[in-house]
Design a protein around this nucleic acid. Structure first.
Length: 414
RNA sequence: CGGGGGAUGGCUGAGUGGUCGAAAGCGGCGGUCUUGAAAACCGUUGAGGGUCACACCUCCCAGGGUUCGAAUCCCUGUCCCCCGGCCA
């Protein structure tokens, strides 16, 4: 959530920054007005409460002294009604404020480029040259069929469209990749954690998926639980409502989880193959840091994911996302796009974001600095989307006869 | 899923309807002593809002209710623990 006091005090700056993300101006105006109104009403409420407390104390004293309390009783009753009215007023204001404020995305960093969509993303650098093939490289679904690695039809049969099953070396390679990635991240100082694959609404609010993006989530019927759309949710929320010691920071964590997404609104996109599924594996990086350290840790995370791709021999490029293309909670995002020779283009395989204090404010994650509690910065990044890594390996390591050579570094994991 | 018991500050744990934001112990921090440390002793130590700073407001799981007044009484919910059932 954006800092309402910042909205109040630095209205023009915040408003300009959010406009870059496509937030309409009027919304921010209304937030500011509501916030100020709420403050004023609350001040009146508190004064009335102070009066009530004082009179109640006096009431007890009168009783003990055997004095007449009829007048006092009348005053107290009147004041009570006033308190109830003011309370209601505050409640309504807060509700309307929350309705608006919780749907405002994060303020983009100053170095985030302008732009509405992925067209305006800025390529920062390329790593590894795409190999040239002396035959026409095939797309992954064709390779999957030839090798029997991915069973699309049966995945659909047992679940529905956008589900698939892995078989033979495909299944084993998926698991090998997970293990390899976790080991790689651990060597880089990220502690491995294992977390629930379902979370409650409070957690989803904390990382920003709720209330705005409920339609993207699978909800468990009859339970207040949702399937996680990314490990970012359970892992970041490990620290929800906690005050960490400064020495405990930064927390650097890595976790493997499956991810579940409805992919609402992406009808017709990437329906072929395994690019966009309702369930996919991902190894995630999460960091909790002080504000001072978050840029440094962000760069470490980008490097970690990029080096992982390099170690697998997969050509890729770094993209700095423009303001309009970033996720709701992000202040800054770098995507890694892997080269898919079959498709002849780069496709997203990792996304690393610094949310600054946006999630920390929603999830109340703080740390103690010289007696004062300050909000932490939270960061998250994929390292990597496992299914897409599998695809990338298939397409980049394919042979003329349609077979696939497993990269050297993964063989010990098979 | 059935039966029983709980939920209080970083932890353990008292708590009478008013003087309780809350005893005590532990832990933390500061100090005395010491070359230094330990021990002992003294002091200090919850969070959020509000204020220039005070004042003041809110918070004893959550939400309702009773009352002039609720950590304390009543209802509902959530979570935890124990016993039994089922189960990887």
């Amino acid at each position: 959530m954006v800092d309402l006091r910042q909205v109040e005090k630095e209205f023009d700056t915040v408003s300009a920054a959010l406009k870059r993300r496509g937030v309409e101006e009027g919304v921010l105006e209304r937030i500011k007005t509501l916030f100020e109104e709420k403050k004023a009403v609350r001040a009146r409420l508190e004064a009335a409460q102070a009066e009530q407390n004082a009179k109640s104390r006096l009431f007890g004293q009168y009783k003990r002294e055997g004095k007449d309390v009829t007048q006092l009783q009348k005053e107290v009753a009147e004041n009570k009604a006033r308190i109830a009215a003011l309370n209601e007023e505050v409640r309504v204001l807060e509700e309307r404020l929350a309705e608006l404020a919780t749907t405002i995305p994060n303020i983009p960093d100053p170095d985030v480029p302008d732009g509405e969509d992925e067209e305006a993303n800025v390529e920062i650098k390329r790593v590894l040259e795409p190999a040239s093939f002396d035959f026409k490289p095939r797309e992954h679904w064709e390779l999957a069929e030839r090798n029997g690695w991915i069973d699309f039809e049966r995945g659909v049969k047992i679940a529905k469209s956008r589900f698939s099953a892995l078989r033979y070396e495909g299944a084993r390679l998926e698991r090998a990749l997970i293990n390899y990635m976790l080991d790689f991240n651990r060597d880089r100082g990220f502690e491995e954690v294992y977390v629930p694959f379902m979370v409650n609404a409070e957690s989803l609010f904390g990382t920003g998926q709720l209330p705005k993006f409920a339609d993207d989530l699978f909800k468990i019927e009859g339970e207040e639980l949702y399937m996680i759309p990314t490990a970012e949710v359970p892992v970041t929320n490990l620290f929800r409502d906690e005050i960490l010691k400064k020495e405990e920071l930064p927390q650097r964590l890595t976790a493997y989880t499956p991810c579940f997404r409805k992919e609402a609104g992406s009808a017709g996109r990437d329906t072929r193959g395994m690019i966009r599924q309702h369930q996919f594996d991902k190894v995630e990086l999460v960091a909790i840091t002080t504000p001072e350290e978050s840029d440094r840790v962000f760069n470490e995370m980008v490097a970690c994911a990029s080096d992982l791709l390099t170690s697998l021999g997969l050509p890729h490029r770094h993209m700095l996302l423009c303001a309009g293309d970033m996720g709701f909670s992000a202040a800054k995002t770098v995507d890694l796009e892997v080269w898919l020779p079959g498709q002849g283009r780069y496709r997203e395989i990792s996304s690393i974001s610094n949310t600054r204090d946006f999630q920390a404010r929603r999830a109340r994650i703080r740390y103690k600095e010289e007696k004062k509690n300050r909000l932490v910065h939270t960061l998250n990044g994929s390292s990597l989307a496992v299914g897409r890594t599998l695809i990338a390996i298939m397409e980049n390591y394919q042979q003329a006869d349609g077979s696939i050579v497993v990269p050297e570094i993964l063989r010990p994991y098979l």
